[in-house]
């Protein structure tokens, strides 16, 4: 199936099986490796991207539904000149350890801050349900509050 969409502002056309998860389209067809595969069951959040402004777990998003959508991945979160406040905060708090889950977390957090510019700790608990096995949550929370200040 031929599908047209934009990724980080760039128009893309791919020809893939209609149910191929968008995750694999991004990773294997477009060769953008920042979006990670963790579980393939929408349970860990490593593959989180933005589709038309909503955070979506791309392992559970069939390619056919990407038609005409605007997609943002971790590679498009910042511009060449400026890091996204969430990324800047992540650097200032030295959040990542292995780093594998972090793109998904940053995409989820960026989306949270788009919708709730100054979240409470309780809101952070409710909205951020990705998994980090290195256990960087304590620093992430500090980084989320810092990102609010940086915005």
């Amino acid at each position: 199936m031929k599908i047209d969409f934009t990724v980080n502002g760039n128009p893309q056309t791919v020809d893939v099986p209609e149910n191929m998860p968008l995750l694999w389209v991004i990773r294997d067809v477009l060769d953008m490796k920042g979006t990670k595969f963790g579980c393939g069951q929408a349970a860990c959040g490593s593959c989180t991207i933005h589709i038309d402004g909503d955070a979506v777990r791309s392992c559970s998003f069939a390619a056919q539904y990407a038609q005409n959508k605007h997609i943002t991945t971790i590679e498009g979160l910042s511009t060449a000149e400026k890091l996204h406040p969430v990324q800047q905060a992540w650097i200032e708090e030295i959040v990542p350890q292995c780093g594998y889950c972090q793109p998904g977390f940053m995409m989820s957090v960026a989306n949270l801050l788009d919708k709730i510019p100054n979240p409470t700790d309780e809101e952070i608990d409710d909205y951020i349900t990705n998994i980090c096995r290195c256990g960087t949550y304590y620093r992430m929370r500090k980084a989320i509050h810092r990102a609010v200040q940086l915005k």
Partner: peptide, 18 residues
Amino acid sequence: LAAMRCNACHQKTNNPYS
């Protein structure tokens, strides 16, 4: 919730892979 929408994971059809 605002940043934890149903459509983060649930699309228009069952997903055969996830």
